[in-house]
Amino acid sequence: MTLRRGLLIIGLLTPGLGLILALIGTVVYIAVSQSFGFYSLNGISEFSTEFWSKMVGRKIFKRSIQYSIYIGVLSAIFSVALAYPLAIWLRKPFAGSNLIGAILKAPLLVHGLVAAFLFVNVISYHGILNQFMQWLGIWSEPRRLQNDPNAYSVLILQTWKNMPFALLLLTGAVQSISDDVLDAARDLGAGKWDRFRRVIAPLTISSMQAAMVIIFIGAVADFSFQVIAGPTNKQSLSQLMVSFKGRGDWHSAAVVGVSLMVIALVGSAILAAVARIIMRGRIK
């Protein structure tokens, strides 16, 4: 490669990739620096681990970490677990399969905030679900379902929003498995379950990992579902970070932000690895 060509390629990459790297790089750099006391907006800027040591000792921080991981991991698992059977079912086109695909993909088109509103509207104290259960006679009086302490609402919303995305990735992967392979497995006497764990699972694992990781990162950093439908006594990491920033405590916000990035990164790696190990274990 000549120097001229090298310069040309760098020149071409600068406005696109260059700006992306500059923006994301600066954002991460500022977050890390602020978590160690630099770039102070309302005090002296000097190196200090005080913000980290103070934050680590806080109960609210520990609870936020546990809660965000709980939401992230379960949302990823539920979405993928629901999407797998649907993707296999829709592998071959049949009458109505396009319609089903479209309906299942519909949540992709609905904004998260709108989804949260629709859901809260349905489960509210005098909402249609409460009325229906009373009408059936199962519940004698309306129940308080909104902002439930176990965050089932948030998990339902995350799964509703993310399952179509997992389905999209998995459908592509499942459809690329040729009939010959599955027929061969059938000829060798493999039942449905065996065909899944020995043929489909290993051949679709990279799409499954991709879906898991992307959903996990989105859900672990959730803000809007948590604020609108989540438990009021717990805070997600994003929510905690926003509340620190709102109080002008940029350094604490940075500590939470950097922790969130590390958790998203490490968590994704662990999830991807665990998914692979489980699938490998099954292949034996």
Partner: peptide, 9 residues
């Protein structure tokens, strides 16, 4: 990178 981290920093 989570959107809120990008937004805040």
């Amino acid at each position: 990178v989570p959107a809120f981290i990008t937004a805040i920093f």
